[in-house]
């Protein structure tokens, strides 16, 4: 599997020279499986760049298909959908897995952002591509794009966000963005989901100081990320979902502090990367 990062920012896109290196687009990553299948996780504005990169291939011809995993429906995780060029090309097909009580409720949530008050698209049905929308059953593995996927909800402020584990052969990737743990860190079920992952991509929105002031928002600090990575004994940690006010130098400092935190917690053997737009990582 190969990870490709398209958007790393939390809450709202943050354009400007001060975010050029890590990028200002909101959450979106892609996994290319060894068999060449595409799995997209979250649909922030990073999805625009991914869409353009897909046009020379099958998606440009209306013959593309991909799995989309949606952690939750806050705007910064769905706002790229209406600007993802492959959805306008008839013949493309997407199977979307997300968190809701039922598949039709999940589809209704996606329709909500397309309604004519907010979007000139009016409804998903006006997109050329077709969507198969499915609610994830927490903790129950399913197969999509030829790999095994498990989703489980993490606490995220007043709501929850799904974390996903994607497994292909002996490699595993975990996506855990938008999580604010209760005291004591990840629950035993979540630690089980993260356990031994080749790569754990984890929410790293804040410094501990900023997180303390904004605890109700439901995001992690680098200490939470380092704690989760060491306790789950993962191979590599990828920091993700930076605060919209953090300039590149702030994220550099966040990474250095996270490295020190990993080392202090007995995780010196865990690799660390601060996600940046354009990052590719072999899993």
């Amino acid at each position: 599997m190969r990870l490709h990062v398209w958007g790393v920012r939390g809450s709202i896109p943050a354009p400007g020279p001060e975010t050029n290196r890590y990028g200002g687009n909101t959450s979106c990553v892609a996994i290319q499986t060894a068999a060449g299948e595409l799995i997209i996780i979250d649909m922030g504005t990073g999805l625009l760049g991914l869409g353009n990169s897909l046009l020379p291939g099958d998606f440009g011809k209306g013959k593309g298909h991909a799995t989309i995993l949606l952690s939750h429906a806050h705007w910064d995780h769905i706002q790229g959908l209406g600007f993802f060029v492959p959805v306008f090309i008839p013949g493309n097909h997407f199977t979307l897995f997300g968190h809701a009580k039922s598949s039709s409720m999940l589809e209704g949530i996606l329709e909500g952002q397309m309604n004519p008050n907010f979007s000139p698209l009016y409804t998903l049905r006006n997109l050329g591509a077709t969507f198969d929308v499915r609610a994830v059953i927490p903790g129950e593995p399913f197969e999509a794009s030829g790999v095994r996927i498990t989703g489980r909800p993490n606490p995220h402020g007043s709501t929850t966000a799904l974390a996903f584990r994607v497994e292909e052969g002996d490699r595993s990737f975990v996506y855990a963005s938008d999580v604010g743990y209760e005291d004591g860190g990840p629950s035993p079920e979540m630690l089980e989901l993260y356990r031994g992952a080749s790569v754990l991509l984890h929410d790293c929105t804040y410094t501990p100081e900023h997180q303390e002031k904004r605890r109700n928002r439901g995001f992690s600090s680098y200490v939470d990320a380092a704690d989760a990575a060491t306790r789950a004994a993962v191979g590599h940690l990828v920091m993700f979902h930076y605060d919209q006010d953090y300039a590149d130098a702030d994220v550099d400092a966040l990474r250095d502090a996270c490295r020190a935190e990993l080392d202090a917690r007995g995780g010196a053997g865990i690799g660390l990367t601060a996600a940046a737009e354009g990052l590719e990582l072999e899993i």
Partner: peptide
């Protein structure tokens, strides 16, 4: 849509 990046600095 917002478009962060060097090309829009």
């Amino acid at each position: 849509v917002p478009v962060p990046g060097r090309h829009t600095n």
